[in-house]
């Protein structure tokens, strides 16, 4: 049985199509990442899969149950952590957790082993009001609350948005541990670098999946010739590279720029311009310390390529 399946889900609000026919299958014990910018439709999809919103058309199942007909059953089987902190600010840490446990007819003690790794970080502050917690602590409390009834499928909507790189790393380590317990995890994120931490990912933009694959395969399926370029004047370099007729696209990527290069018509595996020729072109424009290398694409390169198709 698949943990989650969806076929051709569509949803519009006020004439705007948030989802334009999205299909997916998530395996048991898999970390499935839905990766894309704000407004791509991530939250709408999560709300439909967690039975909080009805699709206009299409169907979806969670653990073999239909999200419309069997919504009550599904709600017992899933844990959902919304993007916005939605616990009770005026209750303490432990009170929040107790409420969630009792709503599902269980207790903190009964499922303590599952949340232990996460909850331990905030247990010393268990008498503090949730509203007075720091961002990272709120996030850990919300995750504990989403897990306290031992869900079979966990939905995390942008758990790392606005979180610093170190705390993001910690959260992903927690998710890996939960996966080992057999919980299927659907997680959405706007950070492309988190793709490699998922078993499979769907790249989403404007309400459609651009591609669903393992991160390794998405990268391997990159079609263009990709080079990294560096010189002393990076901003000017961006403009000069774009002025070259053989350069198809040029984007800043940290300390280098990534360019895709036109292919030879006769030999489509070769670039229409050599590295030496491009270097000469840039030298003529006055660039110093030029460094050009062929490189492997990353997820962001793939996203940019797929989004431009």
């Amino acid at each position: 049985m698949k943990a989650v399946t969806a076929q051709h889900i569509k949803k519009s609000y006020n004439g705007v199509q948030a989802l334009k026919g999205v299909s997916l299958e998530v395996e048991e014990g898999e970390i499935f990442g839905i990766i894309g910018p704000d407004g791509a439709g991530k939250t709408t999809l999560f709300r439909i899969l967690t039975t909080l919103l009805l699709p206009d058309s299409g169907s979806a199942m969670v653990k073999g149950f239909d999200v419309i007909k069997a919504y009550k059953l599904i709600r017992r089987k899933v844990g959902y952590m919304p993007g916005r902190f939605s616990l009770y600010h005026d209750l303490t840490v432990v009170e929040n957790l107790r409420i969630f446990a009792s709503l599902f007819n269980t207790s903190i003690e009964e499922n303590y082993d599952l949340i232990k790794d996460i909850y331990q970080h905030i247990e010393p502050f268990k008498k503090r009001r949730a509203g007075a917690l720091s961002g990272g602590m709120k996030q850990k409390l919300a995750l504990s609350c989403a897990l306290i009834h031992r869900p079979e499928v966990l939905f995390l909507d942008e758990p790392t948005t606005g979180v610093d790189p170190l705390s993001r790393k910690e959260l992903w380590e927690m998710l890996k541990k939960l996966k080992k317990q057999g919980i299927a995890i659907l997680v959405s994120t706007p950070y492309m670098d988190e793709a490699s931490l998922c078993d499979r990912i769907a790249l989403i933009q404007h309400g459609i999946f651009l591609k669903t694959e393992t991160p390794q395969k998405i990268i391997a399926q990159f079609e263009n010739i990709l080079w990294s370029v560096h010189s002393k004047q990076m901003f000017q370099l961006l403009k000069d590279l774009r002025s070259n007729p053989h350069v198809l696209s040029c984007y800043a990527f940290g300390d280098t720029h990534h360019i895709t290069v036109e292919k030879k018509k006769a030999a489509p595996h070769e670039a229409a311009i050599t590295i030496a020729e491009l270097e000469a072109f840039l030298k003529e424009k006055g660039h110093l310390d030029i460094k050009i290398d062929p490189i492997q694409a990353g997820i962001e390169d793939s996203f940019l390529e797929l989004a431009n198709k």
Partner: peptide, 24 residues
Amino acid sequence: DEPTGGVDPAARRQFWELIYDTAD
């Protein structure tokens, strides 16, 4: 203050070009 949170990769880069231009 975190001007590019949540925007797509292309828009994020266009935004930085605007920053470069402003600094220029």
